Computed example of a mutant assay.
Amino acid sequence: MAEAAPLIDFSASSVEVARQLIGACVRVNGVGGRIVETEAYDREDPASHTFSGPTPRNAAMFGPPGHAYVYRSYGIHWCLNFVCREVGHGAGVLIRALEPIAGLDVMRQRRGVIDERLLCAGPGRLCQALAITREHDGRALDAPPFELQPETAPIAVVVGPRIGISKAMEMPWRFGLAGSRFVSRPFRAV
């Protein structure tokens, strides 16, 4: 009998979950791929949407762990986060990039590009490719339309500072799959 894949512990800190998610596969309505880049956010972090407390916009991030928090960035792009920690804490992991695996033709149509490296490299591109919208905000990650499968094999993870953050820049809370050509930007030393 085969062993069940280890589950991702969404009750853990956002930094721990951000690391655990590297290599996991996520699909939305069957379209998706391998997570190759994440960023951690916590309520103690001035760059986090939860730093100033709950609002109607960020309510899902204070909700139960293992759910989606979806918001618009700069009023243009949707961004997908996975909620961590206990209810009321306000922590999550931004999914920055995927290696496209399932539904590439659908992704190409949604994104209007052919190059698979440009399909899901960046949170806005990723959400467009997977058709993530505000409708997904607060939805459980272990139920349709989501499918999440943890990585079971050992993988090498690189760490660096988050992208586009002017507050709390010194925090090395960006994680990536070592050597992946699908990350949104190359990693630099911390």
Rank of each mutant, 00 (worst) to 15 (best):
C25E: 14
S52F: 09
I132P: 04
I101F: 08
P46V: 13
V93Q: 03
W78D: 11
L98F: 08
R43G: 03
D45G: 14
W78G: 02
F146S: 04
F51S: 09
K167S: 00
H49L: 15
E44F: 07
G88S: 14
P100V: 11
P123H: 07
R185V: 03
L141V: 07
V113G: 02
R57N: 06
H49C: 11
E135V: 02
C127W: 06
M107L: 08
P161Q: 13
N58G: 13
F10P: 03
G122E: 05
P161T: 04
R162K: 03
A156G: 00
V183W: 01
A189D: 06
V159N: 00
A59H: 14
E99P: 06
H67M: 12
W78T: 02
S166G: 07
I22Y: 11
A143E: 13
R27L: 14
E147S: 12
L119F: 08
R185A: 05
Y71I: 09
R57E: 07
N29L: 03
G124L: 12
V106T: 15
V190E: 01
A47S: 11
L80V: 13
H77W: 14
D137R: 06
G176W: 02
D142V: 00
M1R: 08
D137F: 04
Q109N: 03
E135Q: 14
L119V: 05
S184A: 10
I35V: 15
A40S: 12
D115K: 12
G160A: 05
R181C: 01
L118C: 07
V26H: 05
F146K: 09
F62S: 09
I132M: 07
T38C: 13
S14W: 09
P150W: 04
H77L: 13
Q149K: 09
R125W: 04
I163Q: 05
P154N: 02
E44C: 10
G30K: 07
Q20W: 04
L177P: 02
P145S: 07
H49Y: 11
F10K: 10
Q149N: 00
A131I: 01
H136K: 05
R125V: 02
P186E: 03
G63H: 09
R125T: 01
F51Y: 15
P54T: 11
D105G: 11
V26E: 04
R134E: 06
G176K: 05
A60S: 15
A153V: 01
D42E: 15
G176Y: 04
M1T: 12
R188M: 01
E170S: 09
G164Q: 01
C79H: 06
R96V: 09
A121F: 01
N81R: 12
V83F: 11
A47F: 15
G164A: 08
E116V: 15
A40I: 06
A18I: 14
A153Y: 00
T133F: 06
E151V: 09
V36S: 12
R110I: 07
R85A: 14
A143H: 12
R111P: 02
V36C: 15
I8K: 06
G138W: 14
G92L: 13
A131Y: 00
S73A: 13
R108C: 11
R72Y: 10
D105W: 10
Q109P: 00
P123A: 12
T152N: 03
P172E: 08
V70E: 11
A5D: 13
A168E: 00
E116M: 04
S13F: 06
L130V: 06
K167V: 02
V87H: 08
G122F: 04
G75R: 12
S14E: 12
A189G: 01
V26I: 15
A129H: 05
E39W: 13
A4V: 08
